[in-house]
Amino acid sequence: MPGGGPEMDDYMETLKDEEDALWENVECNRHMLSRYINPAKLTPYLRQCKVIDEQDEDEVLNAPMLPSKINRAGRLLDILHTKGQRGYVVFLESLEFYYPELYKLVTGKEPTRRFSTIVVEEGHEGLTHFLMNEVIKLQQQMKAKDLQRCELLARLRQLEDEKKQMTLTRVELLTFQERYYKMKEERDSYNDELVKVKDDNYNLAMRYAQLSEEKNMAVMRSRDLQLEIDQLKHRLNKMEEECKLERNQSLKLKNDIENRPKKEQVLELERENEMLKTKNQELQSIIQAGKRSLPDSDKAILDILEHDRKEALEDRQELVNRIYNLQEEARQAEELRDKYLEEKEDLELKCSTLGKDCEMYKHRMNTVMLQLEEVERERDQAFHSRDEAQTQYSQCLIEKDKYRKQIRELEEKNDEMRIEMVRREACIVNLESKLRRLSKDSNNLDQSLPRNLPVTIISQDFGDASPRTNGQEADDSSTSEESPEDSKYFLPYHPPQRRMNLKGIQLQRAKS
Rank of each mutant, 00 (worst) to 15 (best):
41 K>V: 06
36 Y>V: 14
36 Y>N: 07
49 C>F: 15
132 M>V: 07
109 K>P: 05
10 D>F: 13
18 E>R: 13
70 I>H: 04
15 L>I: 11
80 L>N: 00
82 T>K: 09
53 D>H: 05
47 R>C: 04
37 I>L: 09
47 R>E: 02
28 C>V: 10
32 M>L: 09
6 P>G: 13
135 V>P: 06
44 P>E: 06
100 P>Q: 07
15 L>G: 13
146 D>L: 10
38 N>P: 01
75 R>S: 02
17 D>E: 11
5 G>L: 13
87 G>K: 01
115 F>L: 15
94 S>G: 13
86 R>G: 12
128 T>R: 05
51 V>Y: 01
115 F>N: 14
18 E>L: 11
29 N>R: 07
76 L>E: 03
12 M>Q: 11
92 L>P: 06
17 D>H: 11
65 M>F: 07
58 D>Q: 00
78 D>T: 03
55 Q>E: 06
63 A>I: 01
54 E>A: 06
131 L>F: 10
129 H>Q: 06
131 L>C: 13
75 R>C: 05
138 L>I: 06
10 D>Q: 13
123 G>Y: 15
90 V>D: 04
114 R>I: 13
73 A>F: 00
16 K>M: 12
61 L>F: 06
37 I>M: 06
85 Q>Y: 09
85 Q>G: 11
29 N>H: 11
27 E>A: 05
40 A>C: 07
48 Q>V: 04
82 T>N: 06
104 K>D: 06
118 I>R: 10
44 P>C: 03
127 L>R: 08
99 Y>T: 10
131 L>T: 07
82 T>I: 08
91 F>G: 05
144 A>N: 08
6 P>K: 12
87 G>W: 04
57 E>D: 05
80 L>S: 02
33 L>W: 04
50 K>V: 06
8 M>Q: 14
91 F>Y: 04
87 G>R: 04
25 N>G: 09
138 L>Y: 05
55 Q>G: 07
23 W>F: 08
16 K>E: 11
144 A>D: 10
67 P>G: 06
130 F>N: 10
63 A>E: 00
18 E>S: 11
41 K>F: 06
7 E>F: 11
102 L>S: 04
138 L>W: 06
75 R>K: 06
26 V>D: 05
58 D>N: 05
6 P>F: 12
13 E>Y: 09
30 R>K: 01
21 A>S: 12
120 V>A: 05
56 D>V: 02
70 I>R: 04
77 L>K: 03
28 C>W: 03
126 G>R: 15
55 Q>W: 10
111 P>V: 10
58 D>L: 05
41 K>T: 07
26 V>R: 05
50 K>F: 11
146 D>N: 13
37 I>D: 00
24 E>F: 12
32 M>R: 08
33 L>Q: 00
125 E>N: 11
31 H>N: 13
66 L>I: 03
77 L>P: 02
115 F>R: 13
133 N>R: 14
113 R>W: 05
99 Y>D: 00
102 L>P: 06
87 G>V: 03
6 P>V: 13
75 R>M: 05
45 Y>S: 03
109 K>V: 06
54 E>W: 03
136 I>G: 11
53 D>G: 03
128 T>D: 13
